[in-house]
């Protein structure tokens, strides 16, 4: 069965927790918008896929996680990394291809990984991550850590065999795994309304014997609520869940994408649905957080991103000799 949750219901989060969630979402937004500008200068190598607009998903899920939990990410992975606690400056340096980056400049935007944070890696292969999460969840189950594995993947990956194999494996082994299908409407330029042969990705959960949930991806509280239930169930041995998060990405598939395949939905989303705006109005209207404290977070985040870019630009690049290291272990 697929349930649509009421977004009005949420668990109690205290002021500090709300500020933390806001800081994470604001950091992702500022990081991505800055990359959008910086990429246009030509200084950033490779492809960059931005997560702006989708912040509530990574944040709503990862707020429930700690270092014993693993996540696998996608090509659009900056938000997942930040939400899972990967160092923002090391990420920026990695995207700039510098030796001080999370992966010493050898991963780039699409392959940021930090095992110490349970971040198993962004992934350039669509559908590459879900099977890995079965392994991480199986490890947590065998070691009885209480940990869970979360696979973030997109609507494109929902049609990949690896994702479907992973959903089946997770159910067969009753794994503490959560599959978060981030449906932003397009796999590159392919519309999910056409490519997904069901009304919703979450409808497929029934075929794998697990609960399927659809949430409004622009609403942090809706994601937080749905993820909390799924993660709690997984930690208690109740098995996997498929959560479909629906929203729109604010930028193109990649930086430079002309986006001839979609029309005005972004402007509407930015104006009327934006997760940061909604979060702010909600917590200020209920009196849970003063606006001035949110403004202070905005300023701190802006400084952090400025510093991250400055430091990345000043950091050393890998050398030709670095090409031949890290392929095999040394004996």
């Amino acid at each position: 069965m697929t349930d649509t949750l009421s977004t009005g219901v949420t668990r109690e989060l205290d002021e500090n927790a709300l500020l933390d969630a806001y800081r994470t979402m604001r950091t992702i937004r500022a990081f991505e918008e800055r990359l959008h500008d910086e990429f246009a200068t030509g200084e950033i190598p490779g492809f960059v896929h931005l997560y702006a607009g989708e912040e509530a998903s990574a944040t709503g899920v990862c707020t429930h996680l700690d270092d014993r939990d693993s996540i696998a990410s996608t090509h659009r992975g900056h938000g997942h990394c930040i939400a899972k606690g990967v160092d923002v400056k090391a990420m920026m340096a990695e995207i700039y291809g510098r030796r001080t980056g999370s992966c010493h400049g050898k991963g780039g935007s699409m392959h940021i990984a930090d095992l110490s944070k349970g971040m198993l890696g962004a992934n350039g292969i669509v559908g590459g991550g879900p099977p890995l999460i079965c392994g991480a969840a199986l490890a947590a189950k065998q070691q009885r850590t209480g940990g869970v594995g979360v696979a973030f993947f997109g609507d494109g990956a929902s049609n990949q065999g690896t994702t479907l194999e992973a959903l089946n494996l997770a159910s067969v082994w009753n794994l503490p795994a959560i599959f978060v299908a981030e449906n932003n409407g397009y796999a590159e330029a392919t519309a999910s309304t056409w490519s997904v042969a069901a009304d919703n990705i979450a409808d497929r959960a029934a075929g794998f014997g697990m609960p399927g949930v659809i949430v409004d991806g622009f609403d942090f509280f809706a994601v937080y609520e749905a993820a909390g239930e799924a993660i709690e169930r997984a930690r208690e041995g109740g098995g996997p869940t498929l959560i479909e998060v629906k929203f729109t990405r604010y930028f193109g598939h990649f930086e430079g994408d002309q986006q001839t395949y979609r029309a005005s939905e972004v402007a509407n989303a930015r104006e009327n649905l934006d997760c940061l705006k909604r979060f702010r109005s909600r917590v200020t209207e209920t009196g849970q957080v003063e606006a001035a404290k949110l403004d202070a977070v905005d300023a701190q985040v802006a400084d952090l991103v400025d510093a991250a870019v400055d430091e990345a630009k000043a950091a050393p690049k890998p050398t030709a000799a670095d090409l031949e290291t890290d392929v095999y272990v040394s004996y």
Partner: peptide, 16 residues
């Protein structure tokens, strides 16, 4: 499910 088998093994290896 060979992709699932190898993928699961990778996740297990990443976790010790």
């Amino acid at each position: 499910a060979e992709a699932g088998i190898v993928g699961t093994a990778i996740g297990l290896a990443l976790r010790g």
